[in-house]
């Protein structure tokens, strides 16, 4: 079997925060009618969670589901199980007008953790990262400087970030630059 590798082989940088490429994550894009009982059941089968409210995520990268748009979810599963989970989901969606696709290898995942995590994210995305405005199960699709990205907080000082694999190098350099030890701003 070929040696599967994530985009940057787990690269990491330590500055104001620790930036780490988080390795391979199983991701299934699901489009359809999110209010459909059949679709909701298929999501539960695949990741063990209910369909979240708009702009929310349920679970973690090891088993979770994020709200992407009014007709799209991102289902997160362990990378090794993605094909099996996709088959279960497709079977559960039989007859439903919906589409589930394995997009794991089109993505890269990063973790930004440390006391300045909110500040570093605030430098690269046009989002209010104050504790009152973002945290908990909030999930946001936005941009990371010049490329698309999505993120949420695993804890009060740690973000998980998803971007396109083709932009992995850009995003790693971007986050590392934003985390330069001499670039502290002191907000959040």
């Amino acid at each position: 079997m070929s040696n599967l590798a994530s985009a940057l082989n787990g690269a990491s940088f330590k500055g104001l925060v620790t930036v780490t490429e988080a390795g391979l994550v199983g991701m299934i894009t699901l489009r359809g009618d999110l209010s459909s009982a059949k679709l909701q059941a298929a999501v539960k089968v695949a990741c063990g969670h209910d369909v979240p409210e708009p702009r929310k995520i349920a679970g973690t990268v090891d088993g979770g589901v994020a709200w992407m748009s009014p007709d799209e979810l991102l289902v997160l599963v362990p990378y090794a199980q993605v094909e099996a989970k996709l088959s279960e989901m497709t079977a559960a969606l039989d007859g439903e007008h919906a589409l589930a696709v394995n997009v794991s290898d089109a993505r890269a995942v990063f973790r930004v953790s440390g006391a300045s995590a909110r500040e570093v994210m605030g430098k690269v995305a046009p989002v209010d990262f104050s504790a009152a405005a973002f945290g908990g199960s909030d999930f946001r699709r936005s941009r990371l400087a010049q490329v698309a990205g999505a993120f949420w907080m695993d804890s009060d000082d740690s973000f998980t970030i998803i971007c396109f694999r083709s932009a992995a190098d850009y995003v790693f350099n971007l986050l590392s630059t934003a985390a330069n030890p001499q670039s502290s701003v002191g907000v959040y």
Partner: peptide
């Protein structure tokens, strides 16, 4: 009106 985000122009 679809996701409810107060989107800044660059989004």
């Amino acid at each position: 009106p679809y996701c409810g985000v107060d989107a800044e122009e660059t989004e």
